[in-house]
Design a binder for these strands. Structure first.
Lengths: 148, 148
DNA sequence: TGAAGATACCGGCAGATTCCCGGCCTGAGC
DNA sequence: GCTCAGGCCGGGAATCTGCCGGTATCTTCA
């Protein structure tokens, strides 16, 4: 399941996590490899599933989502489809982690305003009891792991 | 501060969040615009800070990080620099949200093994009391918001 | 009303990039 | 020593990007 990576692979991953649009020629320069060699490696990382995709990062506040919150959901039931259906419909739910502990789910939710957030929480509260924390700031932009 | 976006901009954002490496010509095709027009819009979104960057998504398990956890940290002090220094050093800490409520910080942490996670938690526990939940599964790959 | 300006779009072209191919080098196995 | 596989390099065709001028539409203001 796990894939073997050499230091060059780790450098490539670091560069692509920092800038997913860097041209392969420039990427080759940065990791001291020819463009064709680095192309081959990147393609291997993609086909083996190490790189699952490329995403543009969007500034939520800039596009009108002023509020960010962490919601913990105590979900007593065992039928999870209805919740998953809600997740698929509501793009405001950015992330959903199922965890150990009392709170079965930890969600990252965004909203345009407090009333909007309130409405979302009400929908989630239909599944179980919720605990909501408003996010002041997001200290770390996502960087991803380095070699273990 | 917020930026006005028309439906075409939202389509562009949706496409770029789904596939951040799509060529501008193909992107133009998908949103029914010429390559030059879409280039101009994307460049505007970038310079205005709506798009903050592009990142490759890496499968953590595939590269050896088998464990994912949510750690809540009750941080009694007001001096946050030491914590931030730790965040900068430890790439295992993927995300750090400062929130309202008793638990001042909510962190997303990855590790190669339980002993590795234990070591990380011990480091964090130096700052305050922690509550750790292991993540079973991550239900939603990040998709980002749609038009509000 | 009508002209000037701003905005957004298109087409086309030069230069850069990607993709694909054949060939070279090195190490492992026989 | 020979062969094979893996990884890398360089070159050329196809594609993409970045930039240009030109056009249509809408707004502004005289």
């Amino acid at each position: 399941m796990a894939v073997n990576l050499d230091p060059t692979d780790w450098s490539i991953l670091a560069e692509l996590q920092r800038d997913g649009r860097v041209p392969l020629t420039e990427l080759g320069r940065r990791v001291s490899l020819s463009a064709s060699a680095v192309t081959e490696r990147v393609r291997r990382l993609e086909t083996e599933g190490v790189i699952t995709g490329y995403r543009a990062d969007v500034d939520l506040a800039k596009v009108g989502f002023a509020v960010l919150a962490v919601v913990r959901l105590k979900y007593p039931g065992s039928r999870h489809e209805p919740l998953h259906r809600l997740l698929a419909e509501r793009s405001e739910i950015l992330e959903c982690l199922r965890t150990t502990g009392e709170d079965c789910y930890t969600l990252k939710v965004t909203a345009t305003s407090m009333p909007h957030l309130e409405k979302l929480i009400d929908e989630l509260a239909g599944f179980g009891s919720t605990t909501t924390s408003i996010v002041y700031s997001q200290t770390l932009p996502y960087r991803g792991p380095r070699t273990p």
